[in-house]
Computed example of a mutant assay.
Amino acid sequence: TITVTSGTNVHLPCHIPSSSVVSSNALWFKDTGDSKRTQLNLEDDTTDEKKVDLLYPMDHDQSIIIRQAFTDDSGVYSCESAEGERLHTINLIVEDSAPPLLSCKALNDILMRKQRERMSFSLQMASQIYYNSQMNLSDAFTNLSIQYYEAEPMKLLKTSEENTKLINDWVANKTKNKIPKLLEQVSPSTQLMLLNAVSFSGEWKFQFNDKQKKGNFIKLNGDRVKVPLLYHSKYLATMMYVVEMKAQVAKFSLTGDNSLYILLPHSNTEADLQQVEKRMTDGNVRQMIEHLRAAAPQNIEVTLPQIKLDVEPNMITLIEKLGLLILSQLYSHHLCF
Rank of each mutant, 00 (worst) to 15 (best):
T8A: 13
S20Q: 14
S20C: 09
V21S: 14
A26N: 06
L27Y: 08
L27D: 10
K30H: 02
K36C: 04
K36G: 04
E43Y: 03
D44W: 04
E49W: 03
K51A: 09
V52T: 07
I65F: 04
I66S: 03
E80K: 08
E80V: 06
E80N: 07
S81L: 07
S81Q: 08
A82R: 05
G84M: 05
E85V: 13
E85M: 06
I90S: 09
I93D: 09
V94W: 00
E95S: 15
E95P: 00
L101A: 14
K105C: 08
K105I: 14
L107V: 05
M112A: 10
M112E: 09
R116Y: 11
S120G: 03
A126P: 04
S133C: 04
M135L: 15
N136L: 10
A140F: 06
A140M: 09
S145V: 07
Y148V: 10
A151T: 11
E152Y: 02
P153A: 00
K155F: 01
N163H: 06
T164L: 04
K174E: 08
N177Q: 13
N177C: 05
I179N: 06
P180C: 05
L183P: 01
L183G: 01
L183T: 08
Q185G: 02
V186L: 11
L194A: 06
S201N: 11
F206M: 05
Q207L: 05
D210V: 03
Q212M: 06
L220T: 10
L236I: 07
Y241M: 09
E244N: 14
E244P: 02
K246T: 07
A247G: 09
A247M: 12
Q248W: 08
A250W: 04
K251E: 15
F252M: 12
F252K: 00
T255E: 12
Y261V: 07
L264K: 13
P265R: 09
H266K: 14
H266W: 08
H266R: 14
D272G: 04
V276C: 12
V285L: 15
Q287S: 15
L292I: 02
R293A: 10
A294V: 03
N299C: 02
V302C: 00
T303Q: 07
T303R: 07
L304Y: 06
K308E: 11
D310P: 00
N314I: 02
I316A: 12
T317M: 05
K321H: 07
I326S: 13
L330D: 11
Y331V: 01
S332M: 03
S332F: 00
H333W: 03
F337K: 05
